[in-house]
Design a protein around this nucleic acid. Structure first.
Length: 319
DNA sequence: AATCCGGGGGC
DNA sequence: GCCCCAGGATT
């Protein structure tokens, strides 16, 4: 859960998750949809899928226990160099290094690395430094201290060097450029995507569709709809998208609103509709499953934040 | 080496 | 509004 996600954001999800799946065996035998519903809203949904697969492998290969070595830990899905090092050092007290976003910033300043932190040369150097530091009497404590230093004192933009216990060893402090380190490569502008989505009703039930396991928002449910061209708009476009992607004809289409939503590397502009579906069988294109649900219980499905937004707008109007 | 993959806390 | 977060998998 903590991969690329702040501790404060994780805590409520972590509490609910562990209450529901208190041990590896429970998670391994759980229904994937139940795992996803507890993950819904946290983002990076492949992590949930990987975590469940890892639990399954722990049961079948390791009798439900975590191995203590970095090499075997890294064989688990979703466990990379950082996570393997964190488990090995914190749980088992092995001298394994870790470099997360916080540690990278601390070390870039401490050592004085002034090339873009994304470069492989800098990354290699960071892991070397982290390895040197972890090779001591309490590697788990050392690693956690490094991360905590980065999260509390050696923060981005406004480092609190006056409070830093290692400022007298810090190259950036001596040079005076701590606030501008680490250097980051410029990021590309998000791509603008236009979309339509609709609450499709038939006999008082609403059509919910499940996204494919791989890719964006994998395995989550949403309102049917889809990407449209930048200048496409209106009820006819919605009707065409729904016919192509659900096989359903729709009528009495009402536009209930629109909203903008920002993913990290995508800017989404969605027009939201409500409509009645004609009779006929659902034939999905681009979704794994569908369900007809009571509109009030749509929100109980595992939905991404963007889909909750669309649903709220679809239900908001009295149209 | 690049790209993809979410969401929100904190400024 | 912007930055960046207790990264990993895929291509």
């Amino acid at each position: 859960m903590l991969q690329q996600t702040r501790v404060e954001a994780v805590i409520p999800y972590y509490e609910r998750f562990l209450a529901r799946f208190p041990d590896v065996g429970t998670l391994a035998s759980a229904d994937l949809d139940d795992v996803l519903s507890l993950w819904a809203g946290l983002g990076y949904y492949s992590r949930a899928r990987n975590l469940k697969r890892a639990a399954e492998q722990l049961v079948t290969r390791f009798a439900g226990r975590l191995p203590d070595g970095v090499e075997m830990l890294r064989e688990l899905p979703g466990v990379g160099r950082y996570t393997a090092g964190a488990i090995a050092s914190i749980a088992f007290d092995h001298p394994a290094p870790i470099v997360d976003g916080n540690v990278a910033r601390v070390l870039a300043r401490l050592v004085g690395l002034r090339e873009p932190i994304e470069s492989s040369a800098v990354k290699a150097r960071l892991w070397e430094e982290a390895e040197r530091l972890a090779d001591g009497p309490a590697p788990g404590d050392l690693n956690q201290a490094l991360m905590e230093l980065g999260a509390r004192i050696c923060i981005p933009r406004t480092p609190r060097c006056d409070l830093c216990p290692v400022s007298r060893f810090c190259d950036a402090r001596a040079v005076g450029d701590a606030a501008s380190l680490p250097v980051r490569a410029p990021k590309r502008a998000p791509k603008i995507v236009y979309a339509v989505a609709a609450l499709v009703l038939r006999g008082g039930k609403a059509l919910a569709v499940q996204r494919p396991a791989k890719g964006l928002l994998g395995g989550l449910w949403e309102l049917p709809g889809g990407e449209v061209g930048a200048r496409e708009r209106g009820a006819a476009v919605l009707a065409r998208v729904l016919r192509e992607r659900t096989g359903l004809g729709v009528a009495s289409i009402a536009r209930t609103g629109a909203f903008d939503y920002a993913f990290t590397h995508r800017a989404l502009r969605t027009a939201v509709y409500r409509c009645e579906a004609a009779s006929g069988r659902v034939r999905l294109d681009g979704w794994d499953r569908h369900r007809w649900v009571a509109p009030e219980s749509f929100a109980e499905l595992p939905l991404a934040a963007v889909s909750k937004r669309a649903l709220a707008i679809a239900c908001d109007s009295d149209g």
